[in-house]
Simulated assay, not measured.
Amino acid sequence: MTDTLARATPSLRAPAEDGAALQPTRDLHATLPDLLDSLLNKGVYLDLDLIITVADIPLIGVNLRAAIAGIETMLEHGMMRNWDEQTRAWVRQSLARHVPLEPDEEVVARMAGGHRQDEPATVWRPGTVYLTTRRLLVWRADPRELLWQAALDDVTHVEVRTELAIGGEERERLAVTTPAGTTLLSAAAPDRLAALLRSGGASGPARPSAGHQAPVWYREERAGPSVWRGGTGTLGPDGLTWQGVGEARPAVRLREVREVQARTGRAPVGRQVLVVTGDSGTVLLATRDAAWARALAASAHAPRGGDS
């Protein structure tokens, strides 16, 4: 009869005079949600030696060093960046084969929806609603047709309206106002789409109170070539933050903006690069939102509460 025995030895050890390795502990009160929360938010680093024996004869040895955490935590600490960029590039290439995206244009959200055409007759045309870093559009895959689009800079107001459908039931519609007028869109999640549009620069009474937000590109410096990444820039009482699309935490946080310089250079939007110097360093940004850029420049000269 054979038996299998596995021993795990932590890498952390007690002081030399103690002479014994630290032993693993077990919290009987920890629940599965507690463990998952710790794993996703903080991460776990495994450093163990595993020995498998049969009949007290060591046969297999495993030396394991592994870091396990949520993707957002991994990216925040500089891990799996290549995977992240490859995944984003694959998504962009995949979408570009079906949707007419512009160079460096990234999809922020997409959902089933449609566009109401009022001329020559009122009719709903179904498709897919895409919110990108540059525009809002409704695309039909078969036959391929761009049903409607508007640049984010042209969106002046958004609101969710409740209307009666043909069958008499109530439906929520997204009303998008541009210089050309107001257009009604249907969407699987109109409230979420409206919130994203408002945070992307559309004016209106429901603008988030956290601060002035706009679509902003951030140039991330790396060991190799630097990369421009699309996301959202926020100006508020706590300074400047920039958060990438789909990320849970801001990658840039300047609690005090000290200087803003506009330079001509290559950028994913326009020909102007904003060199922003703050309390924790200097970052390069680019945006089409001129009002946001002016607010950023003005924040460099505004006195901060508590400063003398």
Rank of each mutant, 00 (worst) to 15 (best):
L240R: 00
A55Q: 13
G204R: 05
E247I: 02
R110G: 10
G278H: 01
G246T: 08
R116G: 06
L164K: 15
A151M: 13
M111A: 10
M74R: 09
A112N: 13
R81P: 00
I51L: 14
Q117K: 09
D104K: 03
V107Y: 07
W139N: 11
T133F: 01
H301F: 05
A20L: 09
L12I: 12
L22A: 11
D56V: 04
T178F: 00
Y218K: 00
D118V: 13
P24Q: 04
A293V: 07
M1Q: 15
P225Q: 12
P179E: 07
R26W: 15
P268I: 06
D154V: 02
G239D: 02
E172V: 02
M74E: 13
H29E: 13
V138D: 00
A300R: 12
A165H: 06
R125Q: 04
E76V: 12
A121Q: 15
R304I: 11
L28D: 10
Q261K: 08
R65Q: 15
A69S: 08
E102D: 13
G70K: 03
I68S: 10
E102G: 03
S308V: 12
Y45N: 06
H115A: 11
P208Q: 12
E247P: 05
H301A: 13
T241C: 03
T9H: 04
V54H: 13
E145G: 03
D289I: 00
Q213A: 10
E259Q: 14
L284F: 14
L136A: 07
E145N: 09
W217V: 00
R288L: 06
A8T: 03
R144P: 12
I68F: 15
D27H: 02
H115C: 10
E247H: 13
K42V: 15
G181C: 09
E106I: 06
P103I: 04
L164H: 14
Q243M: 07
R135S: 15
T128S: 09
L59T: 15
S226E: 04
A188W: 10
A214W: 02
G201K: 04
G239E: 07
D34K: 02
V216I: 01
S308H: 14
L95Y: 04
A195V: 07
R198I: 09
L235D: 04
W139Q: 14
E256D: 12
R81S: 09
H301S: 14
E145V: 10
N63D: 12
S226F: 09
D153M: 08
V99C: 11
L40Y: 08
E169C: 11
A165D: 08
V283F: 03
W83L: 14
V216K: 00
P225Y: 06
G19H: 01
P120V: 03
E106S: 08
H77S: 15
A96T: 11
A302Y: 05
V227K: 09
